[in-house]
Design a binder for these strands. Sequence first.
RNA 1: GCCAGCGUAGCUCAGUGGUAGAGCAGUGUCUUCAUAAGGCAUUUGUCGCAGGUCCGAUCCCUGCCGCUGGCACCA
Length: 484
Amino acid sequence: MNKKFYITCAIPYVNAAPHIGHALEFVQGDVVARFHRLLGEETILLSGGDENALKNVQAAEKAGVPVQQFIDENNVKFLELTRSLGCQFDVWQKGSDTARHFPASQKLWNLCDKAGDIYKKSYEGLYCVGCETFYEPEELNEQGECFEHPGKKLESVKEENYFFRLSKYQSKIIDLITSGNLAITPETRKNEVLSFLKQPLQDISISRSNERAKNWGVPVPNDATQRMYVWFDALNIYQSGIGFGWDDEKYKKWWPADVHVIGKGISRFHAVYWPAFLLSAGLPTPRALFVHGYFTVNGQKMSKTLGNVIDPNELIAKYGNDPLRYYFLREIPATSDGDFSERRFRELYNAELANGLGNFTARVAKLCEQSKITVASYTSDFPSVIQKYELLHKQLAQSRFDEYIKSIQLFIAGWDQSLEENKPWQYKDNIEENLPGYLSTLITAVRDTAELLRPIIPETAEKILAQYSGASITSEKPMFPRLP
RNA sequence: GCCAGCGUAGCUCAGUGGUAGAGCAGUGUCUUCAUAAGGCAUUUGUCGCAGGUCCGAUCCCUGCCGCUGGCACCA
């Protein structure tokens, strides 16, 4: 049987349209998934919609649309984005899915409950009626009011909720992380989590009353008055999407996840809460977390109030999806923050896609066309190509996309130098007689380049491979016209 | 405030106890197969500031300044 590979991207919050940060994460996940698919591994790439949070209900009310309709519409925007980015998601699991996700989450709840890790406790807090949320005293202004609704007194509300015994799993989670059974990349995020785990863990509340949840979300088993609270069921989408609670065989085949791709803001939930739930339920824990950074735009944090939120769809429409993928992967070191600027984007496009890759494939094609060379036709074979390039293989396997792409550019630059030394054009149409085998070497170089680029910019790679697959290779119009 | 990390050419960054490198941008030049693309050559830096250790520090130590991230029930 083939090796399996199960990878997830974080499930986006569907209360607003996707921004460039979502696009970055989708692309990173897609590249890793493509890499494993190309190696012949059976692969699932999953994401979905985080739909059960109260904020979705509030956003829907504000928009004057029924909740289900509201989240369905937003979901489509995310799905469409994944497609226009050229990302292949195999599963898109919605949190509001009552057929699969609800029973899966109730199953997880029951398992934790059976382990004795769920108990009822009354919770008292300051509640803002305007925001419909609880606040800690330090989150409020000097008058003890929330910033959104100054002048409005907060109510002290007491409510019974279910709590999860997170405290019980503290040392087990530390072991999991230090032993590497739950690998966290990069190291700095791992250290952050471990330093967080030095403090005693408090139990966390995992349910809300129906009133406060506005009757939205997964019902708590055997208690019609409560709904599950965000993280408990949201994280479980990683399981509910692959059969947990509705197809045991499928679930056993795929779980645990080989890697969760997430943003740095949610690393704790994935590194601490999630393994704790699973340990409690007696289920395997995920093997790795890959934590990426955030985007700034022209050096500034992205925010709605600044009005610098970038819509990835506009960039795709203007430049195409592969150039955008290329930029994400090449310019942003995978695990640190990166800046988006259109100026830099265009610079990189011209330097590496137009002048580098595009020009290289074009000049070789023209030389082949002029010499009328015929070569053995080529069938794509990623695994044997990647084997040939040890350093690149390592860089890609470790998800160091920026370094991987730089290596490819170095490879191209080496062939540009070779062309300059050999000057095949001076022999016009009898290149083969004067430089025997040279054109074939060039053709192999182009084919290898395209193979190596298949996980990164799949459409472009296929185009090059198609151009270079046949017995005779002809010149075509530029793939990446130079930008003015 | 506490903890971690960072501060190196115009930009993005790599790097080492022996007085600094790459890519992009800039300049010059060669060349024409190619998308006015490519090759070669080349300018610029008190390696954040101030001390200390050392024969010698950008790399080690201390202090300071600046920046970033983390500091739970928030998705």
